[in-house]
């Protein structure tokens, strides 16, 4: 920035705006992807559970989410009706 710019009204300092925006969007996009082992984990859990109880693939859900400082692995299995 030159001396004259100083008096003529300087250009805005925008680098920190870029950094703040990136911090937010990167954190969001990293969460959205989730860890890469989830599909494999889901497959393997299904295989184990199916050995004992007949469950459909659609009825098992594995998800990972961040709550405060913790990451929570959530496992939802919908068992078929008892006969």
């Amino acid at each position: 920035m030159s001396f004259l710019d100083y008096f003529l009204g300087s250009r805005k300092k925008t680098a920190h705006v870029a950094k703040d925006r990136l911090k937010l969007i990167l954190a969001h996009e990293r969460d959205a992807d989730g860890p890469d082992f989830l599909p494999a984990l889901q497959e393997e859990l299904l295989a184990v559970i199916a050995k004992y109880i007949p469950v459909d693939k659609e009825n098992i859900k594995v998800s990972m989410e961040r709550r405060g400082d913790f990451e929570v692995l959530e496992l939802n299995i919908l068992f078929p009706d008892q006969h």
Binding site: M1, R11, K13, T14, A15, H16, A18, K19, L22, K23, L26
Partner: peptide, 16 residues
């Protein structure tokens, strides 16, 4: 441009 606050610094990018 980094010094003038117009460009992300190498520390910024490393941290991100």
């Amino acid at each position: 441009r980094v010094e003038d606050g117009e460009m992300l610094s190498l520390e910024d990018v490393k941290e991100l």
